[in-house]
């Protein structure tokens, strides 16, 4: 274990380095590459998915350049009326709200369960996807 890398290597951003850096693409208009240190698919895929929901995003993709380096790069291209940074900021705000809602609803469900300790009603058919009768 003498040459084992320190275990905190995948958690702590090295001193003097920035966790997030943005580099505008010189050849593609309205495109930028974000490098996020010490984060993985958890955040990368989440951001990519949320960005792709935005109609102003032309391209959004992420990759982890090397499995042993704990960082990912996120490439975004947007329509000319906005910028990758603005879109990313906007979508992160949406995600924070989404996760906040899930948290709130989970806690509410737990509280209502403790208030009514009987068997919780299980909805047999959730109205999430109507059956299509063609």
């Amino acid at each position: 274990m003498a040459n084992a890398p320190p275990t905190w290597e995948l958690l702590l951003v090295p001193e003097g380095m920035k966790k997030i850096t943005m580099e505008m693409d010189t050849k593609i208009p309205n495109a930028a590459t974000f490098t996020v240190l010490k984060e993985d698919h958890t955040l990368g895929n989440l951001l990519r998915m949320q960005l792709l929901k935005n109609p102003k995003v032309i391209f959004a993709g992420y990759k982890m350049p090397h499995p042993l380096e704990h960082q990912f790069v996120l490439k975004i291209q947007t329509t000319p009326d906005t910028s990758p940074l603005d879109v990313l900021q906007h979508e992160i705000a949406n995600l924070i709200q989404e996760v906040g809602t899930i948290k709130l609803k989970f806690e509410n469900a737990l509280t209502s369960r403790t208030l009514n300790p009987g068997e919780a009603p299980i909805p047999m058919h959730l109205p999430m996807r109507e059956r299509r009768d063609f």
Partner: peptide, 11 residues
């Protein structure tokens, strides 16, 4: 949530 908030702050 904290992870996303940190990214928001850095952006």
């Amino acid at each position: 949530q904290a992870k996303l908030s940190l990214v928001q702050l850095l952006l």
